[in-house]
């Protein structure tokens, strides 16, 4: 007979025997706004999260069965504006794993961790110096299983020009079945970090995207204030990379304002 006493003791025993993962205080406090505004650690993690977002946007691969999407609401806004499936908000558990898996690295260290032969960038524009190099794991949304997961590691370099502008290069494993989009879209944020909208639609910045292969590595770069199309081409040539054709996608529809960044 399954009475209340038996249920009470057995339910508690059954659930208490479930192993609990360690508490991720940073992820918890990130959800708690008071800490988010005051903690320097939060700001640092925020920067890392932003870098992780960038990493995922920088590699807009669409697989037949799995869509490599985004790890933040900003990127989901962009995907929706472009009529691409964005999936549900990323699980915070996955997000915290992405964050903990993101760290500064070196070429030698990253070469041991990435699942491809790492070819570092060459032929950089004059005056460009490397400011950071990260190893990071992108968030992957599977359209088949409807699950977020942590993707294979990739490497992100950030370079600073003498005029203070920056640009980024990213190396990931080449996927022969992947589609490489011709543009990267970015939301605009105001001084408070809110996404700027025009008539209810997000304002988007369009960047030209370039991809090239070196063996099983695909390097990607985007035009912007810090780098021009010709300079990206010079990096590709210096690396003896093979250019990958890109796929042109429809832009945002219906009155969304675009700010085009001139290459």
């Amino acid at each position: 007979m399954l009475n209340d006493d038996i249920l009470g003791s057995n339910v508690r025993a059954a659930l208490t025997s479930q192993p609990a993962p360690p508490a991720d205080l940073q992820a918890i406090m990130q959800r708690e706004p008071r800490t988010a505004q005051t903690s320097p650690m939060r700001r640092r993690l925020g920067a890392l999260a932003a870098a992780a977002v960038l990493a995922v946007v920088v590699l807009p691969l669409v697989h037949p069965q799995a869509l490599l999407a985004a790890v933040s609401s900003d990127v989901r806004i962009v995907l929706r504006a472009l009529h691409l499936p964005a999936g549900p908000p990323v699980s915070t558990a996955v997000l915290s794993r992405i964050r903990t898996g993101t760290h500064a690295t070196t070429v030698a260290e990253a070469s041991r961790e990435v699942p491809f032969k790492l070819v570092p960038p060459a032929g950089l524009p004059a005056g460009a110096r490397q400011s950071t190099m990260y190893l990071m794991h992108p968030g992957t949304w599977s359209a088949k299983t409807h699950q977020w997961s942590v993707g294979a590691p990739l490497v992100l370099w950030k370079f600073t020009r003498s005029n203070g502008t920056t640009f980024r290069l990213q190396a990931a494993k080449y996927d022969p079945h992947g589609r490489y989009f011709a543009y990267m879209w970015q939301t605009v944020e105001d001084a408070h970090g809110n996404v700027v909208t025009v008539k209810g639609h997000p304002e988007l910045i369009r960047h030209e995207a370039f991809f090239w292969r070196n063996g099983d590595q695909v390097m990607s770069a985007f035009t912007g204030d810090g780098i021009k199309r010709e300079e990206i081409a010079a990096i590709r040539r210096a690396m003896s990379g093979t250019a990958i054709p890109t796929v042109r996608t429809k832009g945002p529809q219906g009155g969304r304002r675009l700010m085009l960044v001139k290459p």
Binding site: V11, L15, T16, Q18, S91, T92, V94
Partner: peptide, 21 residues
Amino acid sequence: VYRVCIGIVRDRMAAEDAAQE
């Protein structure tokens, strides 16, 4: 808190997410 969530949510990652929330 996690054990309450794992008793209700049928996915460990979603349960962890709920517990964090």
